[in-house]
Each structure stands twice: as C-alpha cells, then as structure tokens.
Write a protein that binds this DNA or RNA. Structure first.
Lengths: 322, 322
DNA sequence: TGTGAATAGATAAGCACTTATATAAGTTTT
DNA sequence: AAAACTTATATAAGTGCTTATCTATTCACA
C-alpha cells in the first residue's frame, strides 16, 4: 500500500481530503442502515429528521433548512412518497406549494430508527472527541471562517499583499529619516503603554543612543503611504543584539508590513553574524508575540534573567533560533 | 433565510455537514482556477501535483496515492492527455502498465500554477487556524479515529453495550457481599498506589467503617461476570458525602460499567438529598477524572482545603454540581 | 509448460447530487 | 385589469465520482 499523497500536500489538498472523508462517512452510514435492516437510504436521513422535528415543511423550506438544492428535495420527496413514508398536500393559501409530512408508516419507521440515531450520535461524538480531539467544534469554527471569507477571497488578498510587499523598500538609518523613528514608535507606545522619559530620549536621538553604539535602524517604505514602519537592533555587547522599537503606523496596519520588516531585520542580523538576537516585550502585545513566534523567536527564561530587568514594562523575553 | 437544521442535528449530521462543506470548497477551488484564468479542472489538481512530485506513476499507483478509484484515474488520465498536459507511455517491463508523466505543456502549466498553489495553501492555512482553531490537525486526528474504528463499528458496540447495561443489577450492601468490596477495591488500589493500613481496615470492615456511620455501598452485578464493581458514599456529617472506593474488576474493564454505577450512585445521592457530594482522587487517575468530569463533577479548591488532607494520595478534589 | 489466479487498465452503468430551464401560480406595477 | 416580475416546483441534462465487469497481460506453481 502506498502512503497518502494528500498528506504531502497538507492544507493545499484540504478540499480533496474533506471530500474523501465525507464519502467514506456516507458509505459508512449506508452500512449502518443496512446492518440494522432499515429500508431507508442515507440521503433521506436529514429530510426524515427534519419532518420529524418540524412536522410540516414545503420543498423550498426543506432545501433551505438542509442546505441542498430545491431539485434535490423535489427528488427525495418523490422517492419518499413512492416508499409511502411521506404524504404531500397542496398548500391552502398557495397552491404551488407542496406541504410534506411524515405518513403513518413514516412516523413508525422514524420511531423505529430513533434508538439507532441516538446510538449513531453517541458513536459520532465518540469519533469526534477521541484522542483529545474536538473535531465537531473545529468544523463549526472552520465553516464560520469559510463563510466570513472564502478561499478565493483569501487567496486574492494574499496575492495582492505579496505583490505590494515586493514594492516595499527597506531603508537604513539616515539623519533625515530620524524623525520617522520617533513618529512611528511614539504612536504605538502611547497606545499600549505610557511614553516614558527613556523612550523619549531614545526616540528623539536615535543616532546617539542606537547607531553610535553600534546598533542599526531600518525603515519600511510603502510605495504609496511612504515610510510606515521602523525597527532597531540595539548593540548589547558580546555580539548580542536586542530587536526593539519595532512599530508600524496605524494607517499601514493589516498590510503585514511588520512581518516583511521583521523578516528583513532577521536576515540582516544573520548577515551581521549576530551571536544572540533577542527581544523583550509585554504579554499585552499578543499580536506582536504571535508574529515573533511565527518567525522563529522562542520564549527564553535565560534572556529574561539577563536582560529582563532593563525595562519596567517587559515580562516576555524571546530569542531567535535557527 | 431559514437557519441551518444540521446545527440542530449536531454530530448526528456530521456526514452531511462534511459533504456540504467539501462541495463548497470544491466549487470555490473551481472559482480560484477560473479567476486566475487557468484552464484546468479542480479534479485534476491532485494528479497534476502528484506528477509534479513523483515524475512518473502508473494509473493504479496514482489511485493509491490519491485515495481514488482506478477508473477515476483512468478517466482523469484520458482527459489530461486530451488537453495535452500528460504523456502516457507503455511500461517496459509490464506492458499492461501506463506510465503517466507531465508533458512539456503540462510542466509549463504546473510552473505557472505553482505561485497560485502557494497562495492557496497560505489561504487554506489561514482558514484552518482562524479564530484560534486548528482544523487541519483536528481533521487528521478524526480521520485516524475513523480508520481505527468506523461509525458502524462504534454504533454496534454502543448498542451492544447499552443492551448489556440494561441487564446490570445494582445491589445495596449486605454482609454476604462484603468480601466483594475488598476484592474489587484492593485490585485497583494495588495497581495504582500502595494498599495502606487504613485502606485495609475500611475494605475488610465496610459495615463498621462505612455503613454504621451512615454511609452507603452499592455493587454492580453483570449478568455473566457476576459482581464486578463497587462504590461507596462516606457520610462526612452535615449532609456532606464523599464518593469513594469506586472500582471495577479488571475482567470487566472497557464495558463502561463504572459509568453506569457512577450514574446510579449520583442518582441515589440526589434521592438522599445530599447537601454536598464530593470526591478525592489523584491526578494519576486520568481515566477516572475524565469519567467524573463527564458526569457532572467539577474541580473544587474549597473541597481540597476542607477534606484534601485526609488522604496522602489525594491531590484532586471534585464536587458534583447540578 | 501450461493453466488458473492475480493484476493493470478500460468501459459501462449507476448514484447523489448539481445547474439550467420550463411551467404554473402568485404578486406587483402600470 | 393586463403586463411584468417573482416564486414553487418539476424535469432534463450534466458532473464527479463510484461499483461492476470486461480484456489483456503477467505471475505462481504443479
């Protein structure tokens, strides 16, 4: 037996994978009905359950409740009437409507099936929660995410974003850009914390406090928005550098420019043959921490002990690895 | 717009739900290809990706790699040859085999598509991880659970089990059953911990230590295996009772008799108008804790403070609610 | 060395839906 | 009140697979 190529494709083959498992489950459901000698087709199940619950629905209503097309329901209805499980009556107010109801036989069959349905549900819960999983919840959440923005929309957005990222220019520090360093960082520091005196000094005199001490500063320039992000490497001696004062202007949020800049700075740091690249931040900055984690930083207690005391507001220390 | 009846059916309609979302994703994939003007059908995707990765495969190999039927691959192959994307050559060693390879055009098309594939993968990862979800992982785990034991097998097992549960008899304490109390509990206590002196006294003289102090003991009798489980309620005064000495013999493990007994004891405790029903256990007893959680017990620090010191081995305290 | 069993692939038919379209019945607009 | 639109359902045809079955080839072994 060959192994499963869909594993190699991972998330890219998500659709195929879902299709495969749903077909397996359908076949399995057919086996369940056959095993318990119930003379019904799995495809009828949702309609029978719906009729059991709502007593009377029209074809269009049923198709909306079940998320299937109207012709599908039209066909099921025909089949179930042929089996004698469903009665159809013409709508009193609107003679186009066909009102579906379980027949006496249908009610009896559903009653017979209910214990099996309950057992199947238990089995399904079992299946969903085995191995500490919560598949059903994950599926619901996934459906909501898909509803919110589907794969095409996300793909288009991602491509547009990476086209834009290619146009972003990285600029090294120069005195005529110094004011941007202050504007960019003052903005987010004020939003998250309080702009303290040390902050002000560093932001107002970056050459003195950072560059002249062997540190680095870079800016990210958006083709239309101009300079929108900054990031610094602080020289802490012994080849150790602290990544700090990384900020993106409000007007450029959501464009993932921070990530582009961070990756650039990491690449530069590697090129500089940095011994240890670390950063200090606060647990409040969830989004930033997530970004750091995503890009190779890991939480590190030794860094916390060595450098954590330098700033009041820091309670998270991370080190870049690999 | 009506709401979604599949939500009401919850896990029972898992198959239908999976089918629906997989169809949506397939349609969405078709839109992606159309949007980027790629003249390929979504159903071909996995085969093209396979040929890109493995260079050369036969039809049967491809069907195994992709988890589709051989005729499906036979059909795709025909279509892709007609499109000029795939070349077929007859196997040298086995003339029945058709070796599939990407044609020059096929390679070019795949190369054009790759950036889109990458973007789609990013989008899919996004979709899977949005809202703190991990849908892909959950799906893989679910597939494994399904592989291990499918819905039919689980349903059958569950039904057999609940039929057996109906035949289980609950017996109150009587002196002629006292020896079972010791046998059952000594077995599991020895396995998990060390049988201490206090344990021995209580187990050997349950009437003296439990019944005469206003406590209760019940046994579960299996129709074939005999008395296989026991559980006690210890009267701690002020209407507070401790659920303790709950055990199931090795030979009856896996039949969920423990759960049946636990539910019975909870029902009895409620009937006795117990003020507070609690229990003490050890974090080692994962399965038991899971069972307690499933049946209405919650972790409770106050109980730990009030009663936790009584036993050496207890570091988990739980209280029954609702 | 043949002979039956297994395997690779093709073909046909079926299934559970879908989309597209037709028909008939209601509703709204003029 | 007629015309134009909308809605409920039915029907036809298509789709992406499946299972069943057939042919051609290879293998296993007596």
């Amino acid at each position: 037996m060959h192994n499963d190529f869909l594993n190699e494709l991972a998330e890219l083959a998500l659709g195929s994978r879902l299709k495969r498992i749903s077909e397996k489950m359908l076949a399995n459901a057919a086996d369940v009905y056959q095993n318990f000698n119930m003379n019904i087709q799995p495809k009828w199940f949702t309609l029978l359950a719906l009729l059991d619950s709502k007593k009377q629905v029209t074809i269009v209503e049923a198709s909306q409740f079940l998320g299937l097309s109207q012709p599908a329901l039209s066909q099921f209805c025909k089949q179930l009437v042929a089996e004698g499980l469903v009665n159809v009556s013409i709508g009193r107010e609107d003679s186009r409507q066909r009102k579906l109801q379980l027949s006496a036989l249908g009610k009896q069959r559903v009653a017979e099936m209910k214990p099996i349905w309950r057992a199947v549900e238990k089995a399904a819960v079992d299946l969903c929660t085995e191995a500490n999983n919560d598949f059903y919840r994950a599926l619901i959440t996934f459906e909501k995410s898909f509803e919110k923005q589907n794969l095409l929309a996300r793909t288009t957005q991602y491509l547009a974003q990476s086209a834009m990222h290619n146009e972003i220019e990285m600029l090294p520090f120069s005195d005529d850009l110094a004011s941007h360093f202050e504007t960019i960082n003052a903005q987010w520091i004020k939003q998250m914390f309080v702009l303290e005196d040390i902050d002000k000094q560093v932001l107002q005199q970056p050459r003195k406090h950072i560059i002249d001490k062997g540190g680095k500063i870079w800016f990210a320039k958006h083709p239309k928005l101009g300079i929108v992000a900054a990031c610094a490497l602080l020289n802490k001696g012994d080849g150790n550098f602290e990544l700090t004062k990384m900020g993106v202007l409000d007007k450029a949020r959501g464009l993932k420019i921070g990530e582009v800049l961070l990756r650039f700075v990491i690449k530069e740091a590697i090129a500089l043959n940095v011994n240890c690249l670390f950063l200090l931040t606060n647990a409040k900055c969830e989004a930033a921490i997530h970004l750091y984690e995503k890009n190779g930083f890991v939480h590190d207690k030794l860094i916390m002990q060595a450098y954590g005391q330098s700033y009041e507001r820091c309670n998270v220390a991370m080190r870049f690895v690999v």
